[in-house]
């Protein structure tokens, strides 16, 4: 009986240590493991001009502008703290639209704007049939 108890304590201690180590490592990786930077994370005095980065956030309402060439778009990415103007030349995914999530891959420019070479649409956790769309959005804005 005593040996069994010792093994149980040892196994539980090992499990706690392993999970603790995992959580520590995961929180240490907070910056590195993030898939994209939000506009609020961007330090404008130290823009990473020399490498490709991802910028993610919401597309600001009524900010999408199309250039006359038909393939270049300009829009503003916001996260509630800051905004970044983005331009992109190419085909945007179907789900790319105003007030929805986007992840842009590309480079920051010296003036703080962002030139994207690729766009990904970020889907949120809400799923609903088309006829409910307006309703749920209204209740959403009421509670906010």
């Amino acid at each position: 009986m005593k040996a069994k108890k010792q093994r149980l304590i040892l196994a539980l201690l090992a499990l706690a240590a392993v999970i603790g180590a995992g959580l520590l490592a995961a929180s240490g990786l907070k910056q590195e493991a993030s898939f994209f930077y939000a506009p609020g994370d961007v330090d404008h005095s130290q823009l990473p001009l020399d490498r490709a980065v991802r910028l993610g956030g919401m597309v600001k309402e009524k900010s999408i502008r199309h250039d006359p060439d038909g393939v270049t778009i300009h829009f503003i990415v916001e996260d509630g703290k800051a905004t970044v103007p983005v331009s992109f030349k190419g085909i945007a995914p179907d789900l790319f639209k105003e007030k929805s999530g986007v992840v842009a891959e590309g480079h920051f420019q010296r003036d703080g704007s962002f030139v994207a070479t690729n766009l990904l649409a970020k889907h949120d956790e809400r799923y609903m049939p088309p006829e409910l769309e307006g309703k749920m959005h209204k209740t959403g804005s009421l509670t906010q």
């Binding site: 180590a21 990904l120 956790e125």
Partner: peptide, 26 residues
């Protein structure tokens, strides 16, 4: 088998801790 269990809470929390392309929990 016990050591590998460390990955389970990481998968579960990955969309909460880090900015991710995958949406948060529905």
């Amino acid at each position: 088998g016990i050591v590998g269990a460390v990955n389970i809470p990481i998968i579960n929390r990955s969309v909460v801790w880090w900015n991710s392309l995958h949406q948060g929990p529905s």
